[in-house]
């Protein structure tokens, strides 16, 4: 796996000049992702903040081939690009250059409107990596709730009101949905851990077939957080076990980082985010407790899955 020094020495393939907000998580994700890939790569992006901010005509932040089609179909579109490559290499029309293919979407374009397209592409077994940058709401259109919005977060379509404490439903577990597709590699990581992120991208690139990585990304506007806290906030999500770092290789779960006795209460993470500030008002202690119980239960379930697989050993 590449060291930071090696990564830093590589040519920048995702460059500045884009119009993302300070503290936004995805520029880091794509800069690191492209640094981690040495082979030729083409990227297909779903409509959303990233696509909009990085490809405003006549400018582009992409120094690799980049295609945007629409909102819900980056996976299907990428599957067509990959099919074209395989077909034309096979028929001798173009040479085999070990081209790699990446599709991405935000949580809106992945968890929700693009889930069918993603599911189809993964099931069909295309040689591609799908990366979801998950900032937990439709941030591009103005912080509407998505299937990835955590319970009780304040959004503009599930706002905190006199009778409602924000989004009343739990977030989908997208990584597990992807594990259910029996793809060779699924991983969960964060925008603020360069090593975990690049290791996972490198590992994904070493595997043929469909791969999926979901990356927790900050949105200072939607989270109501400080723009300098991207690394801290995403790391705290790991430390409180709301967003564990794990990977699933050929169906086997493996936790990449266990905070153990450094595990922090989820409230420590929530209280830095304005989208949860109502939870810290008197009378809402039960809501906080509910979130803590849910996070603890999910973490124990994940550990149990990993224990089960580690006891099975390598088959």
């Amino acid at each position: 796996m590449a060291t930071l020094k090696e990564l830093a020495a590589r040519e920048e393939k995702f460059v500045g000049g884009h119009t993302s907000c300070a503290g936004c998580g995805y520029p880091n994700i794509f800069r690191l992702t492209l640094a981690a890939i040495k082979e030729p790569v083409a990227v297909v992006g779903a409509t959303g903040c990233c696509e909009v901010n990085t490809s405003i005509f006549p400018y582009t932040s992409w120094k690799v081939p980049f295609l945007h089609n629409a909102f819900e179909n980056s996976a299907a579109t990428c599957s067509g690009v990959e099919a074209a490559y395989q077909s034309m290499v096979k028929s001798g029309k173009i040479k085999d250059e070990n081209f790699r293919f990446i599709a991405f979407g935000g949580d809106g374009g992945t968890y929700d409107i693009g889930l069918q397209s993603l599911s189809g592409a993964m099931e069909r077994g295309h040689d591609m990596l799908y990366i979801c940058y998950d900032n937990g709401a439709y941030m591009n259109t103005g912080i509407q709730r998505s299937g990835a919005t955590p319970r009780y977060a304040n959004t503009t379509t599930a706002p905190v009101g006199k009778v409602n404490p924000g989004k009343s439903q739990k977030k989908k577990d997208l990584a597990k949905i992807m594990v259910g597709h029996n793809v060779p590699y699924v991983a969960q990581t964060i925008a603020g851990n360069w090593k975990d992120l690049t290791n996972k991208v490198e590992k994904a690139m070493s595997i043929r077939g469909p791969k999926f990585i979901v990356v927790l990304a900050t949105c200072p506007l939607g989270w109501v957080t400080k723009s300098q806290d991207t690394v801290k906030l995403t790391q705290m999500a790991v430390d409180c076990c709301f967003w564990p770092l794990y990977e699933v290789e050929n169906g086997k779960y493996k936790i990449n980082y266990d905070p153990k006795d450094k595990k922090i209460p989820v409230a420590d993470w929530l209280k830095l985010q304005g989208r949860f500030k109502h939870l810290f008002k008197a009378g809402n202690e039960n809501l906080l407790a509910e979130i803590q119980t849910e996070v603890d239960q999910d973490w124990e379930n994940l550990k149990a899955l990993c224990d089960f697989h580690s006891k099975q050993g390598v088959v």
């Binding site: 819900e72 599957s79 067509g80 074209a84 189809g120």
Partner: peptide, 20 residues
């Protein structure tokens, strides 16, 4: 490419055509 919908059929066809 035996896609899961017509939306994906044309999306994949677009991707393939954009790839030349």
């Amino acid at each position: 490419v035996t896609v899961e919908s017509e939306h994906s059929a044309l999306s994949a066809t677009l991707g393939a055509a954009a790839a030349g």
